[in-house]
Design a protein around this nucleic acid. Structure first.
Length: 663
DNA sequence: GCACTTTATGTTTTT
DNA sequence: CATAAAGTGC
């Protein structure tokens, strides 16, 4: 590993007050954070449990943890916090739940759970607008706007409707003893503001804070940071305004601008040397981002040589684009004797991965898909987690409804409706209401019996879930509900087997995690909502990485393919209207700067949109990169082989590669 | 009233 | 292509 350059060293050593590090892409941002953690522990005598590093994704947290472990070889940093904002929020809330009127076993709802609640509350609103309501509510929460304030400030009908839904939504969550993702930040903020003693306790516990990707903080996260940092303001924030790509989620670049205002003694250090990419790639990235209005002036430079020209491939349609990318990748890999793991294919939307996946599978090219549907979003896993959630928190009505009806056990819509209205009148959870005499009088015995049987089953299991390890309870739970048989009854044998394997993976994960971290089933239930992928060390697997541009931030790859560089896709159609083009441009910038050695762009002249083919144009971003370093190929001038011919060529190429490089 | 089958429908990005 | 509402047998 190379030596630290002067600004990097300064950023690591500076401890006299709040510090902002403006770190361009590939300038060693993560390295500054990890080395600073090591410096604090080894040279400054900090206790690891007094240091917290905060990231935005679990992946980034994990990678940072690994790098810190390597730096502190031999001496594991006991109690060091490296987590996402949300995971830190959960930790605070679990400890302080009672002060806020929650029980420690509160449930965490994911966005689809919340969507279902909003849609129930706003019954008459049509489907397309429900999502708008949800995102309005979420934006208010992350801006720390109360339902009352939202109602007062509502600009139009939709906002009034959403503000009203917001009020009842908050009440509903409280009744369920549940929180959503935004609450994981907003509730600790409220806690710290209303209970100075609790705030002081946490300020004293987390004595030095390091924040990664600072440009992506929203108002509530910034407030949480300020409350945690307190008057001592011992923190290092690292960010790059050119990589702010979470505006749609409430991230506000004003937080970057506001930092010098809120902390007059703020020290600012810029990292401008890029250690990642070739000059050509960097030049294109700089040319592109120059079209945005700049907040801070930064000039990235590199000493890594010119490198290959950037290629731009024009394809007839999106299927041909996928084929061309896979073919080019194979040829490139052969020519450069590179490994599969040196390649990443990046795209704007998850749907673009489909065609690629199929092709890669056909070609037996190993690949890893990151982002997209989370493991814990799969129906079979959500079925099981609903049982776990209900075990941990009897008030979790959505979990109750899902668990009681999967598998079917003679409790149907009308019974649940009766239960729901009774529970509403008596202000009880569904679970508690089921045991009441008053409810028994309202429904016929043949409806009540299966319901009570289910509730008693949950009661019996609950005793065990608190005491026995997950690995012991889960198999019994599965057997008792007959889940395996139910899967094979409902799905084709092939899908049922896949689902069953996922269920098995899930149980193994619970067992492993429970044993490793000595956690009860209850503890594990709460972390599930926040975890995206099963633990797999991506870097250790020799496979092509498929990722959305958002999920690729913070990563780097030797060779990068950026696909779908079209008007309507990147920049996205929905982003054309407002001033959101700049964010799309930053997204493109993030994509370009992931590449170390080579960069390959492509776009299709026609793309399927819904049912029909739509004509597409090259993205404006291609021209903005400056044409002199781009090399174009394909397009109308070139004859495009039909699918069968392409497949033959792929087969021939594959045979050739097979002979050339066994294994 | 319950469970299962068909039909419509809809896609940005993530914690 | 996968999920979600409406429709049909029991």
């Amino acid at each position: 590993m190379s030596l630290l350059n002067p600004p990097q060293r300064e950023a690591i050593r500076y401890l006299d007050g709040p510090l902002l590090v403006l770190a361009g892409a590939g300038s060693g941002k993560t390295r500054v954070i990890t080395e600073k953690i090591a410096y604090l522990i080894e040279s400054c005598g900090f206790n690891p449990r007094n240091i917290a590093a905060i990231t935005f994704t679990n992946k980034a947290a994990k990678e940072m943890q690994e790098r810190v472990n390597k730096l502190l070889a031999g001496k594991p940093a006991q109690g060091l916090t490296i987590s996402t904002f949300h995971a830190l929020g959960v930790r605070i809330l679990r400890e302080e739940a009672v002060t806020l009127g929650y029980k420690p076993n509160f449930s965490i709802l994911d966005s689809s759970d919340c969507l279902a609640i909003v849609s129930e509350l706003a019954g008459s609103v049509d489907k397309a607008n429900i999502r708008k309501l949800q995102s309005l509510i979420s934006n208010w929460k992350s801006a720390l706007v109360s339902p009352d304030q939202a109602r007062k400030n509502a600009q139009d009908e939709t906002e009034t409707l959403a503000a009203n839904a917001f009020a009842s939504y908050s009440g509903t969550l409280q009744a369920y003893q549940a929180v959503d993702f935004d609450d994981l930040i907003a509730l600790p903020v409220a806690l710290f503001e209303n209970h100075p003693a609790v705030r002081d306790k946490w300020q004293n516990r987390l004595r030095y804070l390091l924040i990664d990707e600072y440009q992506d903080t929203n108002a509530s996260q910034y407030r949480m940071l300020r409350l945690l940092a307190g008057p001592r303001a011992a923190f290092t924030a690292v960010g790059d305004d050119d990589q702010a790509i979470y505006g749609w989620r409430g991230a506000d670049i004003e937080n970057l601008r506001g930092l010098p205002r809120d902390y007059p003694n703020l020290k600012v250090i810029k990292l401008e040397q890029n250690y990642r990419s070739t000059v050509r790639i960097l030049k294109a990235a700089n040319a592109l981002i120059a079209h945005n209005e700049k907040l801070f002036d930064k000039k990235l430079w590199s000493e890594l040589g010119h490198g290959d020209p950037i290629t731009v491939t024009v394809c007839g349609n999106s299927d041909q684009e996928a084929e061309s990318v896979v073919m080019k990748l194979q040829a490139h890999r052969f020519e450069h004797r590179a490994a599969f793991g040196d390649y990443a294919i990046l795209y704007r939307g998850n749907f673009q991965a489909r065609a690629l996946e199929q092709l890669l599978r056909n070609q037996r090219i190993p690949y890893l898909l990151s982002g997209g549907q989370s493991f814990f979003d799969k129906t079979e896993i959500k079925d099981l987690t609903s049982y776990l959630r209900l075990l941990a928190n009897n008030d979790d009505d959505p979990a109750f409804i899902r668990a009681v009806s999967t598998p079917r056990r003679g409790v149907g819509a009308s019974t649940l409706q009766a239960l729901g209205s009774y529970a509403g009148e008596r202000r009880l959870s569904l679970f508690a209401a089921a045991f009441e005499q008053g409810f028994a009088q309202r429904v016929p015995a043949r409806q009540l019996a299966p319901l009570l049987e289910f509730c008693e089953f949950i009661n019996r299991l609950q005793g065990r879930a608190g005491k026995e390890p997950a690995a012991q309870v889960m198999p019994d739970l599965l057997a008792a509900i007959g889940y395996e048989a139910w899967l094979f009854e409902h799905d084709e044998a092939r899908t049922a087997r896949i689902k069953l394997a996922n269920v098995q993976d899930f149980c193994d994960w619970l067992g492993k995690k429970g044993a490793e971290e000595n956690k009860t089933l209850f503890d594990l239930t709460q972390t599930i909502a926040l975890i995206n992928l099963l633990d797999k060390k991506d870097s250790e697997v020799d496979a092509v990485k498929l990722s959305t541009l958002h999920a690729a931030k913070g990563l780097e790859f030797k060779h990068v393919f950026l696909i779908g560089i079209e008007e309507g896709v990147l920049p996205h159609r929905e982003a054309q209207a407002d001033n959101r083009i700049e964010e799309e441009r930053r997204l493109m910038y993030v994509g370009i700067t992931r590449a170390q050695r080579s960069l390959h762009l492509s776009y299709a002249e026609k793309r399927k949109q819904g049912r029909e083919l739509i004509a597409c144009q090259a993205s404006r971003f291609i021209d903005e990169m400056g044409r002199e370093d781009l090399r174009f190929s394909g397009g109308k001038s070139e004859t495009i082989p039909d699918k069968a011919a392409t497949t033959d060529r792929l087969a021939a190429l594959k045979a050739m590669l097979g002979k050339a490089s066994p294994g």
